[in-house]
């Protein structure tokens, strides 16, 4: 088996095993409805995580995405509700704001050689601050167009439903796969993650690539904010706290190396679905207190990671030296 695709494959297999385990334990666990709900309920996380994949592949990290989601949802809600814009006018503006925000972070990272972790941490504070300045209260959205978006979709047999959120997610996924594996930019992103120095010496336009990566990530976070505000029909400055960590976890569960250079877009999707499945499993359990839920999620993620390492190591054989440590 190919060493590169192994972690993704393992994630896929473990996802299926988890699904089977759930189906054995609970009736109706593996129904199309539950599975499609995984997509609907996690669409906003998945969109963010797909953006995060590119950032992590390039050896960076983007902590601002949760805040950008909050900021976009508040901006979106306030444009529609307070300023009376049509959603179709508001959406492009929100996306553009997200893109500019990401580009600015990318410029700071590239031009001034600042560390992504810290720049995006500052970005996280800044975006959250902007959202609070726009409105400290939750803004409910009432607009017929938003309702139309929420009602749009296809019914599938087995009481399954593919809604607009799922459709957007699928579109983003296809775009991401194309970008990562069929464009030059994709190659540059992997190259940066492999070794930024060598990449520059090989003629990779490092600046342009870096800026595109963070622009992409923030734009997707803004898109996700739009999806989220449609889904909840509101915008609130305190949503999405800690979401960046979920996104990072999903990316890493999907087999992407946090140090960059190795990983797949498909892996991230599987990672999000796995995390969603763990949540579903807990909710099927019913009466768990909130703290047991946290402990459960933690231990399941942990077991998953250990399994994944274990299987990958078993299949490739251990290589000498701590070359893969960290």
């Amino acid at each position: 088996m190919n060493r590169r695709t192994l972690p993704v494959t393992v994630t896929g297999i473990l996802f299926v095993l988890l699904l089977i385990a759930g189906a054995v334990q609970f009736t109706g666990f593996a129904s199309p409805r539950v599975i499609l709900n995984l997509f609907t309920d996690n669409a906003f996380l998945a969109i963010i995580a797909l953006g995060m994949t590119f950032v992590i592949l390039s050896g960076g990290i983007d902590l601002s995405v949760g805040s950008v989601l909050a900021f976009s949802s508040v901006l979106c809600a306030s444009l529609i509700q307070v300023h009376g814009w049509h959603p179709l006018q508001a959406f492009p503006v929100v996306l553009l704001a997200g893109a500019c925000f990401g580009a600015a972070m990318g410029i700071f990272i590239h031009v001034y050689k600042l560390q992504p972790f810290i720049v995006t941490l500052a970005g996280m504070f800044f975006a959250r601050g902007l959202a609070t300045v726009i409105s400290e209260q939750s803004i409910p959205i009432e607009h017929s167009f938003i309702d139309a978006i929420n009602n749009f979709g296809f019914a599938l047999p087995g009481r399954g439903w593919i809604g607009s959120a799922t459709l957007i997610l699928i579109a983003v996924f296809i775009f991401g796969t194309w970008l990562a594996h069929f464009t030059r930019l994709g190659g540059y992103i992997y190259a940066l993650g492999g070794n930024a120095n060598s990449a520059a010496l090989l003629g990779v336009p490092v600046g342009l690539t870096t800026i595109s990566i963070y622009t992409l990530s923030s734009t997707l976070a803004a898109l996700s904010g739009i999806v989220y505000s449609c889904y909840t029909a509101s915008g609130y400055a305190l949503t999405g706290i800690g979401l960046e960590l979920d996104a990072i976890a999903a990316v890493v569960i999907g087999g992407t190396l946090i140090s960059g250079g190795y990983g797949y877009v498909l892996g991230t999707l599987l990672g999000v679905l796995t995390m969603g499945l763990i949540q579903t499993w807990i909710s099927f359990h019913g009466s768990l207190s909130s703290w047991w839920t946290k402990i459960f999620i933690g231990s399941l993620v942990l077991m998953f990671m250990i399994f994944q390492r274990w299987i990958s190591q078993g299949l490739t054989g251990r290589r000498h030296g701590p070359d893969r440590i960290n």
Binding site: W291, K294, Q313
Partner: peptide, 24 residues
């Protein structure tokens, strides 16, 4: 260091579960 899990996720696990343990 033993299981070779990436630090950011390895410690994320305790970050999430740890609060649960404290509440427990």
């Amino acid at each position: 260091s033993i299981f070779g899990i990436q630090p950011i996720v390895a410690t994320l696990v305790l970050m999430v579960a740890g609060r649960g343990i404290a509440q427990l």
